[in-house]
Amino acid sequence: MTITEVSEKFNIPQDTLRYYERIGLIPRVHRNKSGIRDYTEEDCKWVEFVKCMRNAGLPIEVLIEYVALFQQGDETIEARKQLLIEQREQLKKRIEDMQQTLERLDYKIAVYEQSVVVREKELRK
């Protein structure tokens, strides 16, 4: 796949894909004889993984470390697992915080809705 196709498939700007490759967030993408990036299915899996992790809020630095460990081979499996466990715990905490915020917003909205109903009743009198 060309960078244009990958960009469209994952809704990621081409410049972002180039940046991800340059900083080691995704492994180097093979280039054809003309020097144009030729994304394989495996490359696309990396792009999808990184997009998912970034959408969840994982820091770029952590993902770069993960990719570097992955490229070192099976002897880094435990380190990769530990890194993912740490990130999962941080994500769970963020989700809890967001849930509390959502509950607070729901409460505030309910208060405003209640005050609108009361105000409308008063105006009808």
Rank of each mutant, 00 (worst) to 15 (best):
M1K: 05
M1W: 04
T2L: 11
E5N: 09
E5T: 05
S7H: 03
S7G: 02
K9G: 00
I12E: 07
I12P: 07
P13S: 11
D15F: 06
L17K: 09
L17H: 12
R18D: 09
E21W: 12
R22Y: 03
G24K: 10
G24A: 03
L25F: 02
I26D: 05
I26F: 02
P27H: 06
P27N: 03
V29H: 07
R31L: 09
N32R: 09
K33P: 01
K33Y: 05
S34D: 10
S34K: 13
G35I: 10
I36T: 08
E42I: 12
D43P: 11
C44D: 12
K45V: 11
K45L: 14
W46I: 08
W46C: 08
V47G: 05
V47D: 13
E48N: 15
V50G: 14
V50T: 15
V50R: 15
V50A: 14
R54A: 08
G57T: 04
G57Y: 01
L58I: 08
P59M: 01
E61M: 00
E61V: 04
V62P: 01
V62D: 02
V62A: 01
L63W: 02
I64W: 00
E65H: 01
Y66P: 00
Y66K: 00
V67D: 01
V67A: 07
A68L: 02
A68H: 06
L69H: 01
G73P: 00
D74M: 05
D74T: 07
T76F: 02
I77D: 10
E78W: 07
L83V: 07
L84V: 04
L84H: 04
L84S: 06
Q87S: 15
R88S: 06
E89Q: 12
E89S: 06
Q90G: 13
L91R: 06
K93C: 00
K93Q: 06
K93F: 03
M98N: 12
M98D: 09
Q99G: 01
Q99P: 01
Q100H: 08
T101W: 01
L102R: 08
L102A: 08
L102T: 07
E103Y: 01
R104Q: 14
R104I: 06
R104F: 07
R104Y: 07
D106W: 07
D106E: 13
Y107W: 14
Y107V: 05
Y107R: 12
Y107Q: 10
A110G: 12
V111K: 14
V111I: 14
Y112D: 14
E113T: 10
Q114K: 15
Q114W: 13
V117N: 13
V118F: 15
V118I: 15
V118L: 15
E122D: 10
L123C: 13
